[in-house]
Design a protein around this nucleic acid. Structure first.
Lengths: 150, 150
DNA sequence: CATCTCAAGTTCCCTTAGGGAACTCCAATT
DNA sequence: AATTGGAGTTCCCTAAGGGAACTTGAGATG
């Protein structure tokens, strides 16, 4: 095995990387989320090699993140997010938050998010699912869980 | 240029990938966060090639995510998270949340997080920074921002 | 009916990057 | 003076990305 297989590690980060950790995969997901759902659209939008795009789409479909479905009687297909895939968009939003904060520079963020609930331009904030208070790097202790390696 | 340069795209996801999108980088960050701060520790914990680990550490230091600092009068160094790097741990926590939900299976999560504020085992939840309501894939509209490409 | 078009891939060649093992370097310790 | 041990370097091999050309299948066109 030449490229290390992250999927077998007892680590949810590694396992998640096994699904969307390869180069381009998050951008493919972003495109599908943003409405570029067809092969040609994604390929042109990203400038990705057709070979690699084929591999990434197949991989994402195999892992249940995207669904490939025909949109014509001709052999034409579009890719749509599954529930599992839509959940991954959370990850993209956090990436956007970090990139906007640390890398956007003078020009400001390339894309803005308007929240339906309040109508405001906003971003995501991480909260504890239990108490609702902020939850960041320094706010937690790590403990071995039931699925920990022996 | 053989590998496409994500850093120049007008997209905060692509720019973030330019910093931590290469294989192993998020796991290196996880290790530093978890207390594996030295070259040998990270190398042994991950089983990563020494060559690649050197490249990743240099890259993360260049991008201000890690700081390399001596811990001995001998030429010994440890890597520590900068503020920029600690902010990236948010991303790891969301990856963990997704992996725990969709990939952990019967065994359950390998690692648990105890939140200091409430003392409970918990996970992160994405909320609107403005109104505090949940903010996920379907809860927002995308708009071009000031840094959008021409 | 033969040809054209077009989305969705495949195939091929070239270059770069990851894996793995061995090697180097340097200061403290024995 | 020789040894140890952390922190990389170097080298070779294989796999994966880039890019361009080619294929396929079915509806549209003349």
């Amino acid at each position: 095995m030449q490229r290390t297989n992250f999927g077998e590690m007892a680590c949810s980060i590694a396992r998640t990387l096994d699904v969307i950790g390869e180069p381009w995969s998050p951008l493919v997901l972003r495109d599908v989320y943003a409405g570029f759902t067809r092969f040609e659209q994604i390929q042109e939008d990203l400038g990705i090699s057709r070979k690699v795009l084929t591999e990434r789409l197949n991989h994402l479909v195999e892992h249940g993140v995207l669904e490939r479905r025909p949109y014509d009687r001709r052999p034409r297909y579009e890719y749509v997010l599954t529930e599992k895939g839509a959940d991954l968009v959370d990850l993209l939003m956090v990436m956007v938050g970090w990139g906007d904060k640390w890398l956007a520079g003078e020009a400001g963020p390339p894309v803005l998010y308007r929240h339906h609930a309040c109508g405001q331009i906003s971003g995501v904030d991480l909260r504890c699912a239990h108490c609702g208070e902020p939850m960041h790097a320094g706010d937690v202790d790590l403990l071995p869980g039931p699925g920990a390696a022996v």
